[in-house]
């Protein structure tokens, strides 16, 4: 047996071992080796583009967290240091900041494309609902992340934003106290927003994105309805 064959057998043994213990290779095959309808276009790549930006945000966010100091007397100074002092700091912060904006644009486009194609119809209602929840949480990420720069613009925009949340019927006063971390606007609000931005929302987002991808894989991609030559778009499926 040649060395190539030996290496191949060894790789298969390792893969079998992993599959035996975790089943992950089966899932991997289920995800990767499947057919998608012929009637798909670049609009169907927006979901993947969003996943790429989410991963980019997670990576740049994790790097920023190593240098950012979430307290009233250090937050702004650490942002200035990240931007001006550390090597490539401005790239990491800039990509995190502009990644957020690009993500919101992509979210709107992805939702619009899904809406136009009727991708929320049976049996994909839950896929749509998880998508809307992801959208709402992303807006929450934008709201909480904006404050962390701790400049005047961000602070006062957040004060107005939190006051607005505080006007909600019944829950308003509790939301108000929860978001600002007490009865007044103090530096405590940074710790509160930092935790929400770093842990609470990303945790929920990761779970929802996982569920969203699972549903898309399980139920298949909706073909563009105007691609009439795609057999998956058979007219019987419409009327």
């Amino acid at each position: 047996m040649g060395i190539t064959q030996q290496a191949r057998n060894a790789a298969v043994d390792v893969a079998d071992g992993i599959e035996d213990r975790t089943g992950l290779i089966g899932y991997h095959r289920w995800f990767l080796f499947r057919n998608v309808p012929r009637g798909i276009s670049i609009w169907h790549s927006l979901g993947f583009a969003l996943l790429v930006v989410f991963v980019l945000q997670a990576i740049t966010g994790a790097i920023l967290a190593m240098y950012y100091q979430p307290a009233a007397n250090t937050a702004y100074e650490s942002i200035v240091a990240i931007t001006t002092q550390y090597d490539w700091g401005w790239v990491v912060r800039g990509m995190h900041k502009w990644g957020a904006s690009v993500m919101i644009v992509l979210l709107f486009l992805h939702m619009a494309a899904s809406f136009v194609m009727g991708a929320y119809r049976y049996p994909r209602e839950l896929t749509w609902i998880t998508g809307v929840l992801i959208f709402a949480l992303m807006m929450g990420m934008g709201f909480t992340g904006y404050l962390l720069v701790w400049d005047n613009r961000a602070f006062w925009a957040t004060v107005v934003g939190i006051n607005i949340n505080g006007t909600a019927p019944f829950l308003g006063p509790y939301i108000l106290d929860f978001l600002r971390g007490g009865p007044e606007y103090t530096g405590q609000i940074i710790a509160r927003f930092y935790a929400i931005h770093m842990l609470h929302i990303p945790g929920a987002l990761a779970a929802l994105i996982g569920l969203h991808i699972y549903l898309v894989t399980r139920l298949g991609v909706t073909p563009a309805p105007w691609k009439t030559d795609d057999p998956a778009n058979h007219p019987e499926a419409w009327s």
Binding site: Y76, V80, S101, I104, N152, A154, W156, V160, G161
Partner: peptide, 22 residues
């Protein structure tokens, strides 16, 4: 801008501008 002046809750220089998507 990269950033504006540091937030100062005490003196209330009030200029509320949210991120563009809000």
């Amino acid at each position: 801008p990269l950033y504006e002046e540091k937030a100062d809750p005490a003196t209330t220089k009030y200029h509320p501008r949210p991120e563009w998507y809000f």
